[in-house]
Amino acid sequence: MTSEDRRPAGGEPRETRTGSDGGKRPVSADYDSDVEAAIRKNHPALITYLAVGDPSIEETKAYVEALDRGGSDLIELGLPFSEPIAEGPTIQASINRALEAGTTSEAFFELVEDLETDATLLVMTYYNKILQYGDEPDVGPFVKRAAKVGLSGIIVPDLPAEEADPLREACDEHGLDLIFIIAPTTEGERLETIMSQVSGFAYVQARLGTTGARGDVSSATHDSLARLSDYEVPKAVGFGVSEGDHAAEIVEAGADGVIVGSALVDIVAESDDPAAALEAKAEELKRGAVRGSETVTNDTEDAPEPEQP
C-alpha cells in the first residue's frame, strides 16, 4: 500500500479500513476505532503507562484511577512478563516487582474488569503472554478475554508486523485495536508493512534504545513524525517523556498524543503518596500537551531543523 491510498489526517472518516490481507473491514461510525476516537476526541491525548501489580493489584487500581482523574485519555496497563526486552531499567524493575508480587494474567484481567475509568484502556505485554493464555499456543483466548473485560487495544513490543496476522485477525474479530511501535530506524518497506497492520494509533518511539525518562525531546521525534505525515492514523510519541514541557514540544511537533511511562513508574517506586503525585503529574502532562497544541501552526514543514543532540 502506498501513501496515496490514504486520506490525510482529519479528512472524512472511512467506512472500512484495509486489513493486512488487503480486505476491507468495517469500522465504527465516527472513527476507525475506539482507540482512535479516544485520541481524536481528546486531542492532544495523554497516554499513561503503569505496570500492573507493582507493588500490588490493589495499589495499581488506586494509581490507575488517579491517572484517570489527572486527565489521562488512554491508559496502557502493563501485563508483566519475565523477559521485558523492550524496556529500560526503570520499567524492568517495576515489572520485576509486579512479578515478585505474584501478578498473573488472570489477576490482571480481574483488575481491568474492576476498574472504573473514563480513560480508554490498553494492554501492553509480550507475545509470550498472549500465546500462553490459552491451553494451546494460540492468540485467540487472550484477545477474547481482553475484549470481555473492557480493554480496547493491544501493544506487543516483540511482535514484528510481518508475523502479526494471527493477532491482527483475532483483534478484528473481537473489536480490539492493535498498536505498533515505529522506531527512528523504521522506514521504507518496513514502515509500510507496519502501517498496513496498525490501528488505533502509531506508537512513535522518540529515540533509539529502550524506555526510560530522559531530559529532552529527541530530533528523531521530528523526523519520525515527518515520515508518518502521509498516514492518517493518529501518532502518539513516547520513550523518554517526563515533563509537561516535553509534552508541549511533542504536540507542537505534530503528534496527536503523548505517551508517558517511566516517569510515572518512578513515582510509584519513590513517592510517599503515589496516587496524589500521579494525579498531579498527569495534570502537568496534559496541560503541557494542550499548551503545545495551542502553538501548533499549519506550516510545521517550514519549522527550523532541530539541532542534532
Partner: peptide, 23 residues
C-alpha cells in the same frame, strides 16, 4: 514467512528499533 524461519520456528521477535539493525 521471514528469512531464517525454520518450519514456523525462528523469526525476528524483537522490538522495532532492532529490526532494521538485524536486517
Amino acid at each position: 514467512m521471514s528469512d531464517g524461519a525454520f518450519e514456523g520456528y525462528g523469526g525476528r521477535h524483537v522490538p522495532e528499533p532492532l529490526q532494521e539493525p538485524l536486517e
